[in-house]
């Protein structure tokens, strides 16, 4: 096993690989969890484009939908938010830092803020009325549900009346926080229970780890 340990260590000194100890210190993950995530990340990265430790949008979509070409507004937004450097690919450090927000131990404030940025489609610093309508319409077009434009308008109106406390036609971060406080289920999908037992799902870290948590 000495050989596999050595080759694993050499293999990990690759472009884009960040020290798990540093990543663990900056996120909700333990060092072993970061190492387990590395195994997952390597699998995702090599699914289509073999260019090392870079996760492309097609590979991200393939993992989410079992299809690399499916267009999805929210998968696009999540990818763009994970791509912190905005260079069109997700690097390992970006993957860990972003997924950390979905960890059961991450703060509610981080989750609320991520959801706000997700829904702020045009990154204006506000969730605007037309963005709410665009998201509802996009989801309806993906589903079998059919609603008339009047019904969609009334759903969006009702939501804006409740969320847009200042009445300026858009939801700011403060208003969003208050709205989520009234409807905590809105950030339910900001927590992935899977992340609690990532080391059980990806146990190969046991052979490769250099650190015991």
């Amino acid at each position: 096993n000495c050989f596999s340990l050595m080759s694993s260590r050499v293999g990990r000194r690759r472009l884009g690989y960040e020290d798990p100890t540093i990543l663990a210190s900056e996120t909700a993950f333990t060092v072993n969890e970061v190492e387990a995530l590395y195994d997952l990340f390597k699998k995702l990265c090599s699914s289509i484009i073999k260019d090392g430790l870079l996760l492309h949008k097609e590979e991200f979509q393939l993992a989410l939908f079992q299809s690399s070409s499916k267009q999805n507004l929210f998968a696009d937004r999540v990818f763009d938010l994970f791509d912190i450097k905005r260079n069109g690919v997700i690097e390992f450090g970006e993957f860990v830092r972003s997924l950390s927000i979905f960890h059961p131990n991450a703060s509610e404030a981080e989750k609320i803020s991520f959801a706000f940025r997700l829904y702020d489609l045009r990154q204006t610093g506000y969730i605007e009325r037309d963005e709410v309508k665009e998201m509802v319409s996009a989801l309806l077009s993906e589903s079998d549900l059919e609603l008339s434009d009047d019904v969609i308008e009334s759903i969006v109106d009702k939501t804006m009346v409740e969320a847009d406390l200042k009445g300026d036609g858009k939801i700011d971060q403060e208003e969003w926080k208050e709205f989520v406080a009234k409807h905590p289920s809105l950030i339910k999908n900001m927590t992935l229970p899977y992340l609690k037992d990532i080391t059980i799902q990806f146990p190969s870290f046991v052979l490769n780890t250099e650190v015991q948590d």
């Binding site: 696009d76 829904y119 989801l139 409807h183």
Partner: peptide, 25 residues
């Protein structure tokens, strides 16, 4: 069924369900 547009959005968006990342292994 949904109290507001965001409940609809967060419940219906499969693109937001990252658990698939872990099931794809």
């Amino acid at each position: 069924k949904f109290l507001n547009a965001f409940e609809f959005i967060s419940s219906m968006s499969s693109g937001f369900d990252l658990s698939n990342l872990f099931e794809s292994k």
